[in-house]
Design a protein around this nucleic acid. Structure first.
Lengths: 282, 282
DNA sequence: CAGAAATAATGAAATTTTATTTCATAATTT
DNA sequence: AAATTATGAAATAAAATTTCATTATTTCTG
């Protein structure tokens, strides 16, 4: 844990003099990492041994070790956190906040994913007769993107962002087909129905959704992408980006499973675009 | 700059003995931050003053100060770097690599963006009579997503991922219309043509692309999203995610510009979905 | 509730550890 | 061979830690 947070947490477990030290440190941690124990003691109006005891109470070996921890906490000042956009933010501010929140969500999403489930999903996808990606709203974009990736693999792949097409397609599915259903909330009724229809028709259903939702219950495998709710502006933001990163993971897993020869093929697909582009000069 | 990089850079400016110190440090920086100057000297088979001189050559005040710098470099171990997926990676490994690379790209993209250009783009978008988003391939998804966000603002917005529709739409555009053209490479001929057609017809053209590309030259404003090339698997990966984050930024800027009353409206749009979803129990 | 006893907190001084400086010598370059 | 640079042993200085006596605080007792 970040040592600055730790100091804040343990503030009331400290003695009077130790708290003085804590306050001086919290007031300007940046200065402290360049101070000797004597200088800090003087600043806080207490003795050197007190500083030393303070350091030990925070589970560090002593003052120099404490400074090391402090320096680490200060580096990159708590990397990425979900900071909310404020009414009066400048363009620079809200840009930074959004990018940072996005990164924080990706961090979170990665933690919620289970490598085993990914492995099993990749297994199923590589063996599938047909792959379908279904999503609605923002998740439709993710399904669309998945199609854009998987069609390169030369496997039958479809994507639908239309409820009726999804239903019809689900009813038509059979053993050996894989249906990937994407929904952040996992509560969209028609999608849950589609998942259950596909399952009834013997398709394997992979859900890209939040843990414990109605959709998750209908799936054979759940790839849980838990990100903090996108409450800021009532629009899906981080959730779809985390889902897209997961699509990248699945696509990558797919190509790795297929071996190096297969990857040459991907290069050909890409190279086929060359004539439609302006040449690079470099 | 990161002190570890600095050591690597200055390696050939160091004397023989100092280089020994450098090598020991680079081999296991994590151990060094818990070693005394004596311990490190012994490990490198040189004397203590040499370590001290080494520290000063790297512009630190002395050994303790050097350790502080080292500790900061080690904090969050060079946060996110673009690590390439390897043939033999386990699911866990490639998942982590992809998420980290994505985060690294977002970091890069944020740095390449100019707050002024974002501000001007938001200005233009809020004042537009009509907004069009054009993209092809992976960028089509981004355009699709942009439509999904901007239609909530109750402004005329279209998205096309079809060359002909894009051309027709571009030719139909007029003063006051904003056309957003999205392309990572910025070299897709038909899109560059669409941009120039739109410009000829007095629309304002905003390009979401890489700096200095043919597309960039056709645009009134370029929002430069420079990410490291997605060379890994010949598929667009990080680029489209950075573009999506930028769409979030533009959408957010839009809502902020419109004020708080407008945001209540967004909530209504979201609430309209309620009946199509299963209730949450909590 | 006063006052004694026990406990905990604190800092002065001594000690120990760690880092730095000085300077003589060795290695390298000119 | 002379000049320059690099290096480490020893001395010194600085910083951190330990010890221990003193002071403050709490708890107990009549």
């Amino acid at each position: 844990m970040n040592i600055l947070e730790k100091i804040t947490n343990e503030l009331d477990m400290l003695s009077k003099s130790e708290r003085k030290v804590a306050e001086v440190i919290l007031a300007s941690p940046g200065t402290v990492i360049h101070s000797s124990i004597a200088a800090l003691a003087k600043q806080a109006n207490i003795s050197e041994p007190t500083v030393n005891r303070f350091c030990r109470r925070l589970d560090t070996k002593g003052y120099p070790d404490f400074k090391l921890h402090l320096a680490q906490s200060l580096a990159n000042g708590t990397p990425y956190v979900n900071r909310h956009v404020d009414e009066n933010d400048t363009a620079d501010e809200y840009t930074s906040k959004i990018f940072e929140s996005t990164m924080a969500s990706l961090e979170l999403a990665r933690k919620s994913l289970d490598a085993n489930d990914i492995n099993r999903s990749v297994d199923l996808l590589t063996q599938a007769n047909k792959i379908s990606f279904f999503g609605l709203g923002a998740s439709a974009i993710v399904a669309h993107d998945a199609q854009n990736k998987f069609f390169r693999f030369n496997v039958p792949v479809v994507y639908f962002d239309d409820i009726l097409m999804q239903r019809m397609s689900a009813i038509n599915s059979r053993q050996g087909d894989v249906v990937v259903v994407i929904s952040h909330t996992g509560r969209t009724k028609s999608l849950v129905e589609v998942a259950s229809l596909a399952k009834e028709n013997d398709a394997t259903v992979i859900g890209i959704t939040t843990t414990g939702t109605p959709l998750a219950k209908e799936c054979n495998i759940v790839l849980s992408v838990d990100v903090s709710e996108d409450t800021d502006l009532y629009m899906p933001m981080s959730s779809r980006i985390a889902q897209l990163a997961l699509i990248d993971v699945l696509a990558t897993g797919f190509t790795l499973r297929r071996g190096s020869k297969f990857r040459d093929n991907l290069k050909k697909v890409k190279d086929s675009l060359r004539s439609s582009r302006f040449e690079r000069k470099d």
